[in-house]
Each structure stands twice: as structure tokens, then as C-alpha cells.
Simulated scan of single mutants.
Amino acid sequence: MRCFWLVVLCLLDHVGANVTELVGMFGHIESPNYPEGYPSDSDMTWNITVPTGFRIKLYFMHFDLEPSYLCEYDYVKVASDDDLLETFCGRESTDTEQIPGQEFVLSSGNTMAVTFKSDFSNEERFTGFEAHYSAIDIDECAEKEDEEMVCDHFCHNYIGGFYCSCRFSYILHSDNRTCKVECSDNVFTEKSGVVTSPDYPNPYPKSSDCLYRIELEEGFTITLEFADMFDLEDHPDVPCPYDYLQIKAGIKEIGPLCGDRSPGKIETNSSSVQILFHSDDSGENHGWKFAFTSVGNPCPVVKPPVNGRIEPVQEKYSFKDQVQIRCNTGYKFVKGGDEVEAYQIECLKSGTWSSSIPTCKETEAKD
């Protein structure tokens, strides 16, 4: 059998106490001289260690110690991670003393200390105890009380450990527990649209950094309109230390934004907007949503030339709008010596038209 399964015994002397180190997947311990009567003034400790990912199950096959009020005389104490789990003494359980009986003791981690002490005398012979221990697998996925051991999405237990996995479109963070999203290359070039935090209105992923860019042609200005439901983790004293939105529009910066108050409508006065969304490794907040729209720089209202007309007729004109100018019957434009029936101009990003309004000239009558 491999060394891994062997019990390694190391006897040390610590200030009068015998300490035995037990390393292995199983083993047993017993009081001195068992099953003969144990001696007075005994002080023994067994430190049991099993591999990480396991805990220790200790159960007694026999137990016979001197009875005493609150186990003042002889006793067995079982501890794990410096926490006292049980104190046993006597031959039967009473209001002031307890024997292990058929119950077993389970450690919280992969270590356990069992201490046996007897006082200076016994009025009769007590046979002591015999106990066995074994390593049992920890189901980390069921350890709900320890948040550090719970996976963000899916938890898979195996003998000696566990691993986490994530839902589709998520990736596992370097902490091997948190699920995050890759969201650093979101570019919007349409003149209007909707942008949300991942999974909105459900809780957004942890440990993520998302970058959204709205890139329009110069000459347009973008407006953001946030929905009323806005929910980012906040702090009462420090501005947005956990999760936040940071908006950059040209040289203008807005944020950080967090909490439960919607930013409402934001006029960016820019054709290019960057939105950075950061989330830390905790929280169950629901995120944000905004619609964006854009308008072009305005151009002056076009007035038709004398003896001419324009199409379309609008109260307002803005960047990229085009206007057709036509002359009435019997009139034409003269351009470069040629007569032209229609002329088109366009509103430029500078807020001016591509050319001035031409003049409609009367055509000469021909025989």
C-alpha cells in the first residue's frame, strides 16, 4: 500500500504532555494501557491531519472514564481549528457529563486534536477508550454558510476538492469562483440604440470591466437617456468604491455614477462617447440601461430662390440633410455656361450649406 495511506506517528514531548502527530486517511487512537486501566496523571494529545479537501470523522468503539461534575477529573476533549467541539467523560451521559455513545464527531477542516487527561487518582479501575478516525470528502458545493466556498454559477464537487463553471457567454475569473464577462469591445455606430449592463435587469456579473463606445461622424451630437431603474452597489461615505459607471464625451467626463438614483438625461455635446462599467467581486445589484439618440448640427432654414422652389420643405435642417432646388417653368440655373434644371445642396458638419442658393434665370425663347 502506498505511503499516502500509512499512518505516520511522531512522538514529541511538549511541557510534560505526550503529543502524537497522525497523518493519513484513517487510523485509531486509544488511552494508555487500553483495555487495562489507564494510569493517573496522564496528559496526551493526538493531532490528526488529513489532506486538504477532506474533514475528519471520529467515532468511539469503547468509552469508560471516571465520572465527575462537568468532567473536572478525567476527560477527552476534541477540538478542530482551535474550536472545542466536544468534552466527554464518565460511563453514561448525565445532566453534567456526556459520553460519545453512538454519535461521531466531525471536524470543520482537515485537522483535529484529541486530548486525554486523567487526574492524580481513581477510586476504581476505568478501562479508558478506543476511537477510530477516517477522512471523509468535504462537499464544498454544499457549504452555503461559507461564502468563500460557493461558486458564482455552477459548483462541481469531486473527492478531495471542487471546481466552478459558468453559464454560456461567461468566463471564469482568475479566482476560480467568480464568473465574469468579456465586454471590452462594444462599438455602436448607429444614430440611435439601447445599451444595458450584462443580464439587465437581472444582477450583473462580478469582477468585470465593460467598455462601450458610441462612435458617430463628426457633426452629430449624442444624448443619453437612462431608465428609471438604476442600481449599482454604493457606499454611504466613499463615492462609488465598488461598482460604477464612468462616462467620457470629448473632453467632458461624467461620474463615477452609482447608487439607485438614475442619471436621467445627459447631453454629451459630442459625437463620440465612451462608457466604462466596473464591478467588483461582490454584490447582487441589477445594473443600468440607457437609450441613445443623435442629432446633426443645424443648418439655416433654406429659402427658395426667386422663381424657384425647394424640396423637401422643413422647419429645421441638420447635418447630412439634402435639399433639391428647382426653377419654375421657363427658368433654369446657369452653371459653367450650361443650363441646369435642378441643383442639390447638403448641410455640412460645420452647420453651413455646401454652396449658396443659385439664381433662376429666364430661358431665351427659340423659334
Rank of each mutant, 00 (worst) to 15 (best):
P358E: 11
N176S: 10
I29N: 09
V187D: 07
G264Y: 13
D95F: 12
G90D: 10
W353S: 08
D13Q: 15
F63P: 02
D280Y: 04
I159C: 00
F290N: 05
N176V: 00
S262L: 01
E284R: 14
S318D: 10
I159L: 04
P100E: 11
S207F: 01
H173G: 06
K289C: 12
N110G: 05
I325E: 10
S31G: 05
F120V: 15
S270Y: 07
L6P: 02
G259R: 01
F290W: 05
D81C: 05
C347G: 14
N157I: 00
P305Y: 06
R167M: 07
M25T: 15
V76I: 15
P67S: 10
G259Y: 06
K180V: 02
W5P: 03
S354I: 07
L245K: 11
A342C: 02
E190S: 15
P256Q: 14
E182P: 10
K361Y: 07
P205L: 07
P203C: 02
G287T: 06
K57C: 03
K180L: 01
T45K: 15
G219L: 11
L257F: 14
V105F: 08
I266W: 00
C71S: 02
R2G: 12
F220M: 08
A131W: 05
Y133G: 06
K191D: 04
N328T: 03
C347P: 08
F154G: 06
R309V: 11
E145L: 12
D95Q: 09
R261C: 06
E217C: 01
N297G: 00
Y75A: 13
D209H: 09
F120D: 14
Q322V: 11
D152C: 00
I29A: 11
L22G: 02
G101N: 10
T52N: 14
D281P: 00
P203G: 03
Q322A: 12
F292H: 08
A142R: 14
P67H: 12
P358M: 05
L11D: 13
P35Q: 13
K335H: 15
T49H: 01
Y242D: 05
P358K: 12
L6K: 11
L22F: 04
A227H: 07
S121K: 15
L85D: 09
N202Y: 04
H156L: 06
I254L: 13
R326E: 15
E148D: 15
N307C: 13
P239A: 11
I48E: 04
P236N: 15
F277I: 10
R2V: 12
E364I: 01
F154A: 08
R125N: 07
V334R: 15
K316T: 14
G337M: 00
L6V: 09
R177I: 09
I222F: 10
